[in-house]
Design a protein around this nucleic acid. Structure first.
Length: 599
DNA sequence: TCGATCATGATTAGGAAG
DNA sequence: CTTCCTAATCATGATCGA
């Protein structure tokens, strides 16, 4: 810490707020284990010297903590052997040095080619890393590194190895995960395995793991039996959940702690002790993720309950998102000017052509793709066949409305619907006009980048509380920056950006943010990195040492494998892209540890 | 090779109906 | 209580032409 103003500012913050709980369902919850404490672990553990002293070493919270950060069990065991279990900071140091050794070995082997393999095209998160690095790592290598840094390495491993890594990344103990794989077979999916573990946990029968005969494996193969099994699971879940309500539910209306215009505003909440900063952090992802995803995310992010907000309460388009953050929630204020909040206000030219039977006032979620010309043509044909003077029959109305809602089509002429233009999407999301225009980005990629972005007004409302805390500006770590939604939000709030370390895999997106940074005459310093998986503790310490730590960490990790629109690979949090959430947690927790050390 | 275009359901939740 | 319906959803992969 370099003794800047933020030191004092932190003193003013009520980090240890003991305000009363004023709404339901935000009590800090910890995941209680029923099965010898080994089945489900809490990946979020305070990183300090007096961390828990529970049970055996392989089940301890310390081990789980570092497993959650991506270290292998072998590494952790060695580090604990060297330092003792109580000194987590020393353990971390040892682990990081192991990684450094390993990385330098990798670089020798691969010729450090990874740095040059940054995808320069459209590819969001497409990492075509050189495979030469794979050849040099044998599976029997006791140093094989299960961290997310080498997912590409993991992809070359046998499936059960890869699955085992995924499970340990999710926070399951290694022996539990491998026992589950043994019982379900090497081809079992992650879902089957986690279901199995959950089933064993709920049945409270440890012998399920260790039975000798294997008659139950086949139940996962048959679809009908699988369905039956799921039904049984559902019943058990229900029975269990009525006792202690652990499952995260979406609020209705989806207004989080409140919005500028709608509903009551909650101004106090009780944060779990481990969640309290510094730094402040802000995490975002899709609200309608597969079951259990938000429970896992919340468990990792220090048991903070998500704030679910639909951006339709801020602008003219819906955007149902969950936000987990440790920000104060009192005295929030919106961005001005307030954005248009109906389709009519946002797109006044459509009013002339808008039929009375289209009752939409809000658009649906702005996605990464737009409707096809063929579709708009089909709609026009269908309407023209209905004649001129009267309204189309109900079944045609329904067809047209379904398609318009599905693809966010608006009326641009007689019987003529069209997808939104890119600049209209920019406006709806709260970005300056032409924010994503030009600079070599294609039209298709422009839609993609916008569809993956924050809604600026929504995020700004949440971040607005930082203005009085950091009147002289703040240092920010921006993970998965995209087109810079958080940066734009802070700038529009009038919060100076001092040092921004921005990590974004897509070069096109980095160019957009860089261009915006220059055009808005930012006084601060923008540092761009490309891959969150490459960001390690040494780098972080260097950056933090140079300007005194991060005040804020913002990031929305990839939703590809969570989003409902994905027909192909909606694999959940352990999917190829969405598993980068664990890097968000890893980096956040690293920063927390480092800042704790600096104080 | 790049960019544009197009077709491709499933998983949730919630509510009405039985 | 179950069953059925409505509704929404930060996408991927194949193909084609330039």
């Amino acid at each position: 810490m370099n003794g800047n103003a933020s030191d004092d500012e932190y003193e003013d913050i009520d980090w240890n707020t003991d305000d009363e709980l004023e709404i339901n369902g935000i009590a800090p919850s910890s995941f209680v284990l029923e099965n010898g404490g080994a089945v489900v672990s809490n990946g979020a553990v305070v990183c300090n010297g007096e961390a828990s002293s529970s049970a055996g070493p392989s089940n301890s919270k310390v081990v789980q903590h570092f497993l959650g950060m991506g270290f292998t069990e072998q590494m952790i065991a060695k580090a604990i052997a060297e330092n003792g279990e109580a000194k987590t900071e020393l353990i971390l140091n040892s682990l990081l040095s192991y990684v450094a050794i390993e990385e330098s070995r990798d670089e020798l082997n691969s010729g450090a080619q990874q740095q040059h393999c940054v995808d320069s095209s459209n590819g969001q998160l497409s990492s075509d890393y050189d495979e030469g690095v794979l050849d040099d790592l044998s599976e029997s290598d006791s140093w094989s590194w299960s961290g997310s840094e080498v997912d590409d390495i993991a992809s070359s491993l046998p499936k059960h190895e890869k699955v085992l890594r995924s499970l340990t990344k999710m926070g399951y103990a290694v022996e539990v995960a491998s026992a589950a794989i043994d019982r379900c077979g090497p081809e079992a999916s992650i879902t089957e395995l986690t279901d199995f573990i959950l089933a064993a946990q709920m049945a409270k029968t440890e012998d399920v793991f260790y039975e000798d005969e294997k008659p139950k494996i086949s139940r996962f193969g048959d679809l009908k039996k699988r369905k039956f099994y799921e039904l049984e699971m559902k019943k058990k879940r229900k029975a269990l959940l009525t006792e202690d309500d652990e499952v995260i539910r979406l609020p209705k209306p989806m207004i989080g702690f409140g919005t500028p215009n709608d509903g009551p505003v909650v101004t106090h909440r009780k944060l779990p002790e481990e969640a309290i900063g510094p730094p402040f952090f802000y995490y975002e992802n899709v609200a309608l993720a597969p079951k259990g995803v938000w429970d896992t995310i919340s468990r990792f992010l220090y048991d903070i309950q998500p704030e679910f907000v639909d951006s339709k309460y801020f602008c003219a388009a819906a955007r149902k998102r969950g936000y987990i953050h440790n920000l104060p929630i009192k005295n929030r204020f919106p961005l001005f000017p307030l954005p248009p909040r109906t389709i009519n206000d946002a797109l006044p030219l459509t009013k002339k052509w808008w039929p009375k039977w289209d009752t939409r006032t809000k658009l649906n979620c702005l996605q990464t793709c737009i409707g096809s010309a063929k579709l708009t043509e089909r709609i026009r044909k269908a309407l023209e066949e209905c004649g001129e003077d009267h309204e189309p029959p109900l079944h045609v109305q329904k067809y047209v409305m379904d398609q318009c809602k599905k693809w966010n089509l608006v009326w641009v002429g007689k019987n003529k619907v069209a997808p939104l233009e890119a600049d209209e999407v920019e406006m709806l999301l709260g970005f300056p006009r032409n924010h994503t225009r030009g600079g070599g980005i294609s039209r298709t990629d422009r839609y993609k980048s916008l569809g993956n972005s924050f809604q600026v007004d929504t995020v700004a409302y949440h971040l607005s509380v930082l203005k009085e805390i950091f009147p002289n500006g703040l240092n920010m770590l921006s993970l998965f920056s995209g087109i810079g939604g958080a940066e734009v939000a802070l700038h529009r709030l009038g919060i100076p950006l001092k040092n921004v370390v921005s990590v974004e895999i897509s070069r096109a997106n980095r160019d957009i943010v860089r261009s915006w940074w220059e055009q808005t005459n930012q006084k601060g310093n923008l540092i761009h990195l490309d891959d969150v998986q490459q960001l390690n503790g040494d780098q972080l310490e260097r950056y933090m040492g140079s300007f005194g730590g991060f005040d804020l960490i913002v990031g929305g990790s990839p939703c590809n494998n969570l989003a409902g629109s994905n027909r192909v690979s909606r694999d959940g949090l352990e999917g190829e892209h969405s598993s980068l959430f664990y890097d968000y947690f890893r980096i956040l927790d690293l920063v927390k540890c480092i800042m704790k050390g600096q104080q």
